[in-house]
């Protein structure tokens, strides 16, 4: 019998919980302070990319918006990222299906080969593709950049799709067949809705990677610049806070995409 008159038990004291908090703050600060500085510089009145903070202005954003080469580069980047993402996600979906559904000879090698583009250093992929495209006598330009981005976007898109497919309960598919659905309807009504958010997550990841890719792009681009290439080019000649403004915009959009991708990566509750 518990003694109802006994005093309430005091909670066990935690040992210095603030220590972990401080350590976390230091680690996060190390990671994110530089980014914070760039954001700060983008609204700084100073003409060169530096601190101290001399006053708040949004002029650099206006300047960046009016900058024709910068806008052309942004347009190129969006175009490249969009097409490469479609390419990567489409092929990733097909590859994920092949791996999920079928047993075939060389399956492990196939998976490894698909993941190689993100395992290999970008320099290697870039040089290899450059050599390949020139021997095919394919003119360098945005087309070759799209192909290059598509290649390393594929494994990025493949990952989340394959993981989700692995969680798909086979009984759902069987139930749909059983209730009269044909294979195409089963895919449309049951399987795709189950993996949809993973497909979206994979596509967002591929898009973000393509959008700020530099290494492979250096080897494959022609006269048209992508945004990261344009920024890189300017850093060596005229460093103005305009670049910081562009970086802040990219940062914001990327963060939104990454958060959206994360939110999408949970499977539907059964």
């Amino acid at each position: 019998m518990p003694d109802v008159s006994s005093p309430a038990i005091a909670p066990r004291p935690q040992r210095r919980p603030w220590l972990l908090g401080v350590w976390t703050a230091i680690a996060l600060g190390f990671l994110y302070l530089p980014i914070g500085v760039v954001v700060l510089m983008s609204v700084n009145q100073s003409r060169i990319l530096s601190l101290p903070f001399t006053g708040f202005t949004l002029d650099w954003y206006g300047l960046a918006l009016a900058d024709a080469p910068l806008r052309a580069a942004l347009g190129n980047s969006l175009k490249v990222a969009a097409i490469a993402t479609l390419f990567a996600t489409g092929l990733g979906l097909l590859a994920a299906f092949a791996i999920y559904r079928y047993q075939f000879w060389g399956k492990t090698a196939f998976r490894l080969a698909l993941n190689l583009p993100i395992l290999l250093p970008g320099v290697v992929t870039g040089v290899a593709m450059l050599a390949y495209f020139s021997s095919l006598e394919l003119g360098l330009g945005l087309g070759t950049v799209i192909l290059g981005h598509g290649v390393f976007g594929l494994p990025v898109a493949l990952g989340p799709i394959l993981t989700r497919l692995g969680q798909f309960p086979t009984a759902l598919e069987e139930a749909a067949y059983d209730l009269g659905a044909r294979p195409v309807q089963v895919f449309r009504d049951v399987l795709f809705p189950y993996i949809r958010s993973a497909v979206v997550a994979g596509a967002l990841l591929a898009f973000t990677l393509s959008f700020d890719e530099v290494v492979v792009t250096i080897f494959l681009t022609g006269r048209d610049n992508t945004l990261p290439m344009e920024i890189w080019g300017r850093l060596r000649t005229n460093i103005t806070p305009e670049i910081a403004a562009v970086a802040t915009v990219i940062l914001t959009v990327s963060s939104i995409l990454v958060v959206a991708s994360q939110r999408n990566s949970a499977p539907p509750s059964a």
């Binding site: 759902l172 069987e174 139930a175 809705p193 539907p268």
Partner: peptide
Amino acid sequence: FQSYALFPH
């Protein structure tokens, strides 16, 4: 089905 296999979405 044993697991009912209701479509979650």
